Amino acid sequence: MYRTGDLVRRRIDGRIDFIGRVDHQVKLRGFRIELGEIEAVLEDQTGVTQAVVVAREDQPGDIRLVGYYTSEAPLNEATVKAAMGADLPAFMVPTHLVRLETFPLTPNKKVDRKALPAPVAKKVAAPKPAAAPVVQAAPAVAAGTAQDSGRLQAQIAEIWSTVLGVADISGRDSFFDLGGHSLLAVQAHRSIRDELGAKGLSITDIFRFPVLEDLTARVAALTDPAAAAATTPVRSKAPAPVAAPAVAAPEPVAATAAAATPAPAVNDRAQARSDAMARRRAMRARRSA
């Protein structure tokens, strides 16, 4: 009727029932998202042969984007997410990626999105960070204080696991890298304040200290300032950088050799999908004009 893309049914009395969408557009935390655009970016990743993205609500009120793909070999989820983040805003990067051998199909040989499996709760393997500076512990640290800090970190990790649906959380994991967002941050903040007695913890602390160890230190400072000061690590001075030896510049390569280098292969499926999405946006613009 208004060319909004909504699929409706008109009753005899004139009322209109909303059935769904004629496309795969969804609304997530205030943003209207075209799932086909995310699928095109996912299919453009090296090793991906086919991709489907859906918005799942496995827990009431918690809608998350889940990307399903097929490939010859498993891919590193953190690496794929980082590559997708270079082409998409953060709210369009799927929270979970699931590799399938084949996609479930309907009797019409189309992907059965309702039959796609729920993602399994597991920890995301993040890329290895750069070498951190040597940390030298303060000399006067009681064993009981270290045990209390470890117990507090385990309690916060359990809260994260309940909120995020992710198991096996380590001290250097980030709340947002594990799938957290602003709404889940509010839930985690409320649980930490109520269960651990950190009444001085503000919602901004969840964003300032997204890493589990850092948030644990913050909560410890609010609940027991004396113990938190005793367990503060002392960072040693980094060694002075060594001057690198001078290296002669390489000879320029002939232009003919550069021209002979073959261009990287382009995923035909991803290119076709991107062209289709561009035509769809152009058609909508003409209709609204």
Rank of each mutant, 00 (worst) to 15 (best):
R151I: 09
V134E: 15
P129M: 12
K128V: 15
V120Y: 04
Q147V: 12
A154S: 13
F103K: 06
A140C: 03
V163H: 06
K122T: 13
K110D: 01
V163Q: 09
E101M: 03
A125G: 00
A157T: 08
A146T: 15
P117H: 04
A137P: 11
A131F: 08
P133W: 09
V163K: 08
D148Y: 13
F103Q: 01
A143C: 01
A131P: 07
D112T: 03
L100R: 01
I159E: 04
P119Q: 06
A142W: 08
V111C: 02
V111M: 01
A154G: 14
G144P: 02
P129H: 12
P107S: 06
A118N: 07
S149N: 05
V134I: 13
A118K: 09
S161Y: 07
T95I: 04
E101F: 03
A132M: 10
P104G: 06
A140I: 11
A142L: 11
K123I: 06
Q136Y: 10
D112E: 02
G150W: 09
K122M: 10
A132I: 06
N108G: 07
T145P: 00
V124S: 07
A130M: 10
N108H: 05
Q153M: 15
A142D: 13
T102W: 00
R99C: 00
K122E: 14
A132Q: 13
A143N: 10
T145E: 15
L100C: 01
T162Q: 15
P104E: 05
G144L: 09
Q147E: 14
T106P: 02
N108L: 04
V141M: 10
T162N: 15
A126N: 05
Q155W: 05
E101G: 05
K109Q: 08
P117D: 02
W160S: 11
P127Y: 09
A126P: 00
L100S: 01
A146P: 02
V163Y: 07
A157M: 10
P104K: 03
A154L: 09
R113N: 03
P107A: 09
L97P: 00
A130V: 13
P104N: 02
G144I: 11
I156H: 08
V135E: 12
L116N: 07
Q136V: 15
P104Q: 02
A143H: 06
K114N: 08
V135P: 06
I159G: 05
G144H: 11
A157W: 08
